[in-house]
Design a protein around this nucleic acid. Structure first.
Lengths: 336, 336
DNA sequence: ACGTGCAATTTGCACGTTCAAATCACGGCG
DNA sequence: CGCCGTGATTTGAACGTGCAAATTGCACGT
């Protein structure tokens, strides 16, 4: 009996073969004769052998880890993706033989954290989420030649691999849904111009309204910072217009929650007097009263696509600098 | 110029010392003369050297990684800790020189995932959260001799290191707050008996009501599964009692959201006619109308304490099988 | 009988680091 | 003057694995 965990050598001795044969059974089974394979497998089972990940990775010069920066959610807002996306990411990574390593920037700055992780060979690549226009992280990683895939399209010219959800299609679906329900005057409450995600969602709204043959009234297009209170104030502003809207498409669930609150304060019945849609289908959407119709991003699919892109990138080191756009889905609830 | 990342040998050559001296500069500076230290440091800066984590870990037989299982949040409920706790965990771990590795159980079962991670030396230990009575994970890890610390006390006799938040104190604080506001008939909506967390929160309620000199009426103590709809039904039930309550303490924010919804459906003004408190201070609490008074767990502190316990455990391999209890805080909002 | 070719298996070495032990430099002291 | 001790530094080996090259076994054709 040996001390500690069994090693390749222990298995080799038990199966009466050489160390390398055991290695081949695990990594290149076609090179080994079936009967020896079986003998080795038995020894592995017998001893409960598990390969030493660090030793393997040291030799192959990969860590089979993917880094993901977990951002601090500002109080008063909801991180729309953290829970579902991270979970999906971990699952997708596992299926491809990778693990997910979480990190937060330390005092040395954000770029330093990325540099260190890849410099120490702690991770092979990164997944970036919530990438905005000209995200500094993307440019830094690009310069360093570090493999990464983003959730979100940062800017043109697009020169790296990305996966994104078609935000414009999301708001457009909401608009079509509301038009179908008979609404004529549709309002939009979005974020201030300048955020990639927000701008695209706004764009989708405007386009869809025009395409549906409804009049796009700039007075019904309000932009505020994310949050419940700002959403509430936005609705007040909308209701003061000469011809108030009967439906409000919101860029986020937080803002939608504010709109709903303000509507009820004014005595409007949300769902009948005023229709409201949110975005991201966060856990709150189902908890609000009335429950909130919201655009749901296919985060599981996003994660899965991102991981396959990243693993392909890591395997070939050949960047295919393209992206793909996935369609979101409207979850209809009581608020419309 | 050498190909690839600089190694210890490259630095040694540049500084005109041996490989081991460079290693000592990094790991045992007291052994090296100040002037050589400086020379080596300069070389390190010059070359941009970063130690190869895998090589180091292979030799020291540690991975400096902590495993954390990320659970799937059932739809319709909110994971109260995921966002804040995970973030806090990552930060606390980083400060102690550890990284956090996320994982989910695969098809081979939950225990297999833990076994594999530790068997392959991928992680040094685990942090378990949301541990219930006789949590199978805890017993398995205990048997295997794997270092771990739990968020939550699993059962008596307590034979491992744990950190928990005093749930009873949380509900008790809520009760005192409501009593102080002049309420006499307090109700509780909890989870069905059998969950460690739920039972303790219930206990805190009962104790505090009695201690405040109020009558504890079992008819006002309702137990339902977590969720908005179940919460709503619970309030209906409470309002049908001969003497309905004027305040409801809820075991979770989801249930509180349901109670609030049902109250408003009945035409009760939450905050004046009926006071409601939630638990966990999830993001929803602030978004609900009215905003929800809720018990907030000091997750940052919990994470920090857990990590110091785990790192101590990893360093000494000497278990001090005790735990510590942290006090939650009541965040008062409009619902009371 | 003897090389030839091919598949199966083994041996040597390296990945980059740390630990343990050995060596070196140098000043104090009998 | 030579010996010893101490602090600083170097050397050799090892952690467990995978790659590349070397070796063995074996059927086959001449």
């Amino acid at each position: 009996m040996v001390e500690g965990a069994p090693t390749l050598n222990d298995v080799a001795a038990a199966a009466n073969v050489s160390r390398q044969t055991v290695s081949n059974v695990l990594n290149a089974p076609h090179r080994v004769r079936p009967d020896t394979t079986e003998r080795v497998r038995a020894a592995i089972r017998e001893l409960g052998y598990q390969p030493h990940r660090l030793a393997r990775n040291l030799k192959t010069r990969t860590s089979r880890m993917i880094g993901y920066e977990i951002a601090r959610t500002p109080p008063g807002t909801i991180n729309p993706v953290l829970d579902r996306f991270v979970h999906a990411l971990v699952e997708a990574a596992r299926d491809d033989g990778y693990h997910v390593l979480l990190f937060t920037p330390d005092d040395n700055g954000q770029a330093a954290a990325y540099d260190e992780l890849v410099g120490t060979h702690t991770v092979d690549g990164f997944v970036l989420s919530e990438v905005g226009y000209g995200d500094p992280r993307a440019t830094v990683l690009q310069d360093r030649g570090t493999p990464f895939v983003t959730f979100g399209r940062p800017e043109l010219p697009i020169d790296h691999s990305w996966v994104d959800v078609d935000g414009a299609a999301g708001t457009a679906t909401a608009v079509r849904h509301l038009v179908q329900r008979g609404h004529h005057r549709l309002a939009f409450v979005g974020w201030p111009a300048g955020s990639a995600t927000g701008d695209r969602r706004a764009e989708g709204f405007v386009e869809a309204v025009k395409r549906a043959g409804r009049y796009y009234d700039p007075a019904l297009d309000v932009r505020v910072e994310d949050g419940v209170d700002t959403g509430a104030r936005a609705l007040q502003q909308l209701l003061e217009t000469p011809e108030p809207p009967t439906a409000v498409v919101c860029v986020s669930d937080s803002i939608a929650a504010g709109v709903v609150r303000a509507a009820r304060t004014r005595g409007l019945a949300v769902g009948t007097d005023l229709a409201v849609t949110g975005f991201d289908d966060t856990p709150v959407a189902a908890l609000l009263t009335p429950s909130l119709t919201s655009v749901r991003q296919p985060l599981e699919q996003v994660a899965s696509r991102i991981v396959s892109r990243l693993t392909a990138l890591l395997a070939t080191h050949q960047v295919e600098p393209t992206g793909e756009l996935l369609a979101p889905e409207l979850i209809v609830r009581d608020s419309t």
